[in-house]
Computed example of a mutant assay.
Amino acid sequence: MSFFKNQFANVVEWEEFRDDMIFWKWNNREIKKGSKLIIRAGQDAIFINNGKIEGIFKDDGEFNVESEIVPFLSTLKGFKFGFNSGMRVEVLFVNTKEFTVRWGTQNPVLIPTPQLPGGMPIRANGTFNFKVNDYVTLIDKVAGIKQSYLVDDVKIRITSVLDQLLMKWISREGKDMFNLQANSAEIARGIREDLDMQVMDDGLAITGFQVMSFNYPKEIQDMINKTASHEMIGNLSKYQQVSMTDGMASGKVQGAGAASDMAGMMMGMNIAKEMMKNMEEGQSSSAPVSGGGNSGGGAKKPNFCPNCGAKNEGANFCSNCGQKLA
């Protein structure tokens, strides 16, 4: 007898569960007497009749539809199962977790900037988070026409407007185009608020938006790195001298014809100029103060050898090249 009693019974459950699925609809079947409802952790079950929500069940477990579910359905609580008849309702299973999605600009976003008439081409990447927020709106706008809904469906919608939002929030209030990472939190906050308004009509909520990095074209990134190096050196003239000296010492500044010869000659002239300047400063700083008479010590000896520039300690001859100094 029990066989005949339960031969039409079925199990109402999410049969095609996937981590990237937002909801799945159990429909086009009749719930018979003795049927069971199975709700797993992280799922809610929504009973729908003629497009109207009859009841929402959030506790996970196994439930008898006739005795534990029907009494709580809003307009179907008086429904009685017959031997050959059942109840035709849709059951929408909703994934209640918060989804995390990676995003990235497929093409560079041209940010208007005075320095570049065509705009600054910038790429960006990061993550955003969302979850189902409003079941009534979700059923009215999405579940009413779809059998299931995937994370990729939401990602496509988000990325379709992301370029415009990046342009809006990067250009806002004259942000430094060459140091966008410093403003990434503010930019992300503005984009999250705008995206939340976009998906609110589907019963979803954007719970987080993060910008991991902004990427410039290689030429601009090289320029940023070079500018940073100059600022770290502090003295641009000294940096140029050091760079040229390093280049010649390493053999990089050679064999380039007239340009290389000119660079070497300019460097030599600068070095000679600095040497003469140092000699003159040393001589003026060590010149004796006139005392109004001659002590008879003979002719004054120079502090530096006029032939090789070596420092003199009062000797008559240069200790480096032998030049007579007296």
Score class of each variant (00 low, 15 high):
40 R>F: 05
38 I>P: 01
257 G>I: 06
44 D>F: 12
71 P>A: 11
16 E>Q: 14
34 G>R: 14
253 V>S: 02
92 L>T: 09
11 V>S: 07
109 V>E: 01
190 G>H: 06
28 N>P: 00
218 K>H: 06
85 S>V: 02
33 K>G: 05
288 P>I: 03
270 N>D: 11
76 L>C: 07
46 I>H: 02
41 A>D: 10
35 S>E: 02
242 V>E: 13
235 N>W: 03
95 N>I: 08
31 I>H: 08
162 L>V: 01
106 Q>P: 00
180 L>E: 09
93 F>V: 08
132 V>A: 12
310 A>H: 10
233 I>P: 00
71 P>Q: 11
124 A>W: 00
134 D>S: 13
59 D>M: 12
148 S>H: 12
225 N>T: 13
210 Q>R: 09
107 N>D: 10
34 G>E: 04
213 S>D: 14
99 F>L: 07
89 V>S: 06
288 P>W: 13
187 I>H: 00
173 E>R: 15
229 S>M: 11
181 Q>R: 12
21 M>G: 04
254 Q>M: 13
167 M>F: 08
174 G>K: 03
4 F>T: 09
226 K>R: 11
245 T>M: 09
68 E>F: 12
80 K>Q: 13
97 K>A: 07
284 S>M: 13
236 L>T: 13
108 P>G: 02
13 E>D: 08
209 F>S: 04
309 G>V: 09
9 A>F: 11
227 T>I: 13
36 K>T: 04
166 L>G: 00
53 I>N: 04
94 V>T: 06
115 Q>A: 15
210 Q>T: 14
32 K>R: 13
229 S>E: 14
42 G>M: 04
268 G>A: 15
211 V>W: 01
2 S>A: 14
140 D>S: 14
219 E>A: 07
8 F>M: 08
90 E>G: 12
252 K>M: 09
259 A>C: 04
56 I>E: 10
267 M>G: 00
74 S>W: 12
122 I>P: 01
287 A>L: 11
183 N>G: 03
278 N>I: 13
8 F>P: 00
103 W>S: 05
92 L>H: 03
156 I>H: 03
258 A>H: 06
123 R>P: 01
298 G>M: 10
201 D>Y: 05
176 D>C: 02
97 K>W: 05
84 N>C: 06
